[in-house]
Design a protein around this nucleic acid. Structure first.
Lengths: 219, 219
DNA sequence: ATAATCTTTACTGTTTCTTAACACTTTTCT
DNA sequence: AGAAAAGTGTTAAGAAACAGTAAAGATTAT
């Protein structure tokens, strides 16, 4: 889920933004001053920043240069063109004047996130000491590589994407159908067995539990 | 020098834009219709496109999806928010309403060019002792030149752009479809074989590994 | 028109998938 | 409670899918 940092000292506008973005499926964090934003920045690694200009402490113009590598959309009531231009040249990715239209704001956020996601994201799934690296398409336990077939990999990936949740056999079949179109319940059973065997051989440990009559889950 | 393609049927506005951008140090090319723009697109490879919406022939909305990979700023007198939002979601990077402020236009152009140059427009790709120079369109191992066909070059380039990552056959086909429109999985196999052979002959070394059922990656 | 390149066809060997068979466990039915 | 039914876990083996290469015909560029 994409993380958006909202930097605005106006509680009301912040609330509106937070609700809007949450509804849209983003995760949000609030900062009420420039200094607070900078503190948050190191721990939280937001995918995008919404920056109000009029801030207590450090103002927006001073905060902007610190946001290297993260797309920043400036929100402000200021409508001075020169000011707008300066901000854009200093590193802001976009500029929206208040009051803003919510649809447009969401669209501009989507544009920025689209652009930043183009530049190679790493996707690694973990569970306990099990690591699945989707970029290089490898599974590791500790530093031991586990060689999986396409179907086994797809099954494990799905389980790792929903850790501790029970995945029903039918959703499993559904979701791996792209990789293995004519896998049935009876063949799934075999894949499961083979997958467990490989994991067991690597670590002498059980990772996958069966839920009787329903499906499987990680333990 | 950055190349900007101006797509606008209004001679006057086009002239203004051209003068403005030229003064600013850009090189510009004009297109007066959507169809003309598409024709130009293949030969000219602009760094950015300024797109007017009201065009004879293909209109702006129809042209937009064809501009994959090139940042597009839409210029228009239309101020309908929904329309604006649609365009942004369809792939436009920014939207400026006419009449526009020239400083702001220049700033927004600078932002887009800055962003696209950040996202890896490196013209020399390396992997181990393999060097692919996009400027002179050549591949070297050490100082030995490897003569590749267009398709082989496109395949190797894509692999080099994502070193150690697994590239699926389908994305491979997608991304080289510009160079080789009707390449299928079975012909890809042959290109792969030929490419490997050439690399092997040059260095007696394997660079490309197959990931069974998925695709390929550099090792 | 000639050469280069791309796709198709054909064939071999390998990997992976599914089916079938069987032992075993849990649930359900009477 | 005991038997039948349904579910699970493994093994082994044939079927299907995939990878790699060569050669020939089709297409494209020069």
């Amino acid at each position: 889920m994409k993380e958006i940092l909202i930097i605005d000292d106006d509680i009301h506008i912040g609330n509106v933004l937070e609700e809007l973005l949450t509804k849209e499926g983003y995760h949000t964090t609030r900062a009420y001053s420039g200094t607070e934003a900078l503190l948050l920045l190191s721990s939280l690694k937001p995918d995008l920043v919404l920056l109000d200009l009029m801030l207590p402490g450090l103002n927006g113009e001073e905060v902007l240069p610190k946001m290297k590598g993260i797309p920043v959309i400036v929100l402000s009531a200021k409508i001075d063109i020169d000011n707008k231009v300066d901000l854009l040249l200093q590193g802001a990715c976009d500029y929206i004047t208040k009051p803003f239209n919510t649809k447009e704001l969401l669209a501009r956020i989507a544009v920025q996130l689209r652009q930043s996601s183009n530049s190679s994201q790493i996707s690694i799934l973990r569970f306990d000491d099990l690591i699945l690296n989707q970029n290089i398409h490898k599974v590791l336990i500790g530093d031991h590589e586990i060689k999986l077939t396409r179907t086994e990999y797809a099954i494990l990936k799905l389980l790792l994407q929903n850790p501790t949740q029970v995945i029903t056999k039918s959703t499993l079949l559904d979701r791996i159908s792209e990789d293995t179109p004519d896998c049935t319940e009876s063949s799934l059973k075999i894949h499961m067995s083979n997958l467990r065997k490989k994991l067991r051989e690597a670590n002498n440990k059980e990772y996958i539990e069966s839920v009787w009559g329903i499906g499987f889950k990680l333990i």
